[in-house]
Amino acid sequence: MTGAWALLGAIAVVAVVAVVLRARDGRVRPAGAHAAEAHADLPAPVRALLDPGTPVTLVQLSTTFCANCRRTRTVLEELADRTEGLRHVELDVTDLPEVAATLGVLRAPTTLALAPSGAELLRVGGIPKPDALVAALRPHLPGPIG
Rank of each mutant, 00 (worst) to 15 (best):
V93D: 00
G118Q: 08
C69G: 04
I127S: 09
T63S: 13
A136C: 13
A115W: 07
L106H: 11
P30E: 12
P43S: 10
R73I: 00
T83N: 04
G53D: 15
T72W: 00
A67L: 10
A44G: 03
A80K: 02
S62E: 08
G3M: 06
N68G: 06
P142D: 12
W5D: 14
A67T: 14
F65Q: 14
L86W: 00
G104V: 10
L58N: 04
C66H: 01
L86F: 04
L103C: 04
P139S: 12
C69Q: 01
T54G: 08
T72E: 02
T63M: 13
V17S: 06
P97N: 04
L133E: 09
P130E: 15
L79N: 05
A40F: 11
R29D: 12
R82S: 14
L137H: 07
R47L: 06
R123T: 06
A132I: 07
L42I: 10
A36K: 07
E120I: 09
R73P: 01
G26N: 06
L114K: 03
A4F: 12
V99H: 03
L137E: 06
I145V: 15
H140W: 14
R24M: 10
A115Y: 05
A48M: 10
Q60D: 12
L7C: 10
G53T: 11
R138W: 03
V99A: 02
T110C: 04
R87T: 03
P97K: 02
A36S: 14
R29M: 11
